[in-house]
Design a protein around this nucleic acid. Structure first.
Length: 334
DNA sequence: ATGGTTTTTACTGCGTC
DNA sequence: GACGCGGTAAAAACCAT
């Protein structure tokens, strides 16, 4: 699509966002008339002008679309699809907005630079890098964000979680909450909170091993998490066991045919137990695990308690206890 | 700190393949 | 004999007070 698409006026560009560019143009041609002679007005895309076909009057020379560049399908998208600049991302410490100087000593055409130019570029690069990572806060952020990125890919978390975690860490930094605490611990805690907020929770037990904290330092993550929830007033609700179903079922590699049936069955069981207040006080992971095991029984998937316990970070004993009361709650004899 | 609850650990016997 | 399952007791972890 042309970057200088010419449209009737700015309001139109907002209202007709759902229709494609060509449709808009057709409609315009019918409605627009020259004030002087009544002839059709036609747009000149390259010049951004509206010109009368008959008398040559330039009706408007400022017809450049300042609206969003791409087609959008929801009002949320509208804001994010700005016409200019690189997309902003919170995953980079400078939101991806700083200057980058290529490390290759080539000019825009790919030719080698003269030695004089080369030296100049070296100096510029050096100073640019110094400027970018200037100050302790920026250094702090840079380290934290790279840790968040590393950990979230190790845990198979998506970009949305990573963005959320980065945003949380940024807030902590702005409120001066990091001083006196370890960057690693705070970053891990942000990631943990983000994974829950994005409905793809990871347990703290899963976070510990991918963080660079030693085993006896792992309580730092608990502490940091409580701290940021308190300070940032995050609305953290208890994790819904259903949010684990997908991942656990994936890890169990079940016959694709039984997979959906089991998930539905498990959700039904969780609903039944939820209604009878059997969820409170119980670890969400164990509830999810038990519902999966019970669903496996009902669907005859040949799942063992040990298998489910392994993927869910629980134990057979716990699964036993839970799945029985689940079947009972759902009124299913076993 | 305390007490109540859940979860884990470790160990057991039973039945089946 | 290996495996899945069920049960138990004691220890550990967790939570609200």
């Amino acid at each position: 699509m042309s970057s200088e698409r010419v449209i009737e006026n700015d309001e139109e560009s907002v209202d007709n966002n759902e229709t494609s560019g060509t449709e808009q143009v057709k409609e315009q041609r019918k409605t627009l008339e020259c004030n002087e002679c009544g002839g059709d007005l036609r747009k000149n895309e390259k010049r951004g002008e509206l010109v009368c076909v008959d008398c040559g009057l330039v009706a408007d020379d400022q017809h450049i679309d300042r609206g969003p560049e791409w087609r959008t399908f929801s009002s949320d998208d509208m804001d994010s699809k700005s016409r200019v600049g690189a997309p902003m991302t919170k995953m980079l410490h400078d939101k991806g907005l700083s200057t980058n100087i290529d490390w290759r000593d080539k000019d825009a055409y790919g030719n080698n630079l003269s030695s004089r130019q080369r030296e100049k570029m070296h100096r510029l690069r050096k100073w640019n890098e110094r400027y970018r990572t200037q100050g302790h806060q920026d250094r702090n952020l840079k380290l934290a964000l790279s840790e968040i990125s590393r950990m979230s890919s190790a845990l198979g978390l998506n970009d949305q979680v990573q963005e959320t975690a980065s945003a949380l860490y940024r807030q902590c930094l702005e409120k001066n909450m990091i001083v006196g605490r370890s960057i690693e611990g705070m970053a891990s805690a942000c990631l943990y909170a983000a994974s829950r907020q994005c409905k793809t929770p990871r347990s703290l037990d899963e976070i510990y091993p991918v963080s660079r904290l030693s085993n006896d330092q792992s309580i730092e993550i608990d502490r940091a998490y409580r701290y940021i929830v308190e300070e940032l007033e995050l609305p953290m609700e208890p994790v819904d066991p259903k949010q684990y179903l997908n991942r656990f079922l994936n890890d169990l590699d079940i016959h694709p045919e039984k997979r959906t049936a089991m998930q539905q069955q498990a959700e039904k069981l969780l609903d039944a137990t939820e209604e009878q207040n059997l969820h409170s006080g119980r670890a969400p992971t164990s509830l999810a695990a038990a519902s999966i095991y019970a669903a496996g029984l009902l669907e005859k998937a040949g799942l063992t308690q040990t298998e489910v316990a392994n993927v869910s970070d629980t134990t057979q004993v716990t699964i036993r206890k839970r799945y029985k009361e689940m079947l009972e709650a759902a009124g299913i004899p076993y």
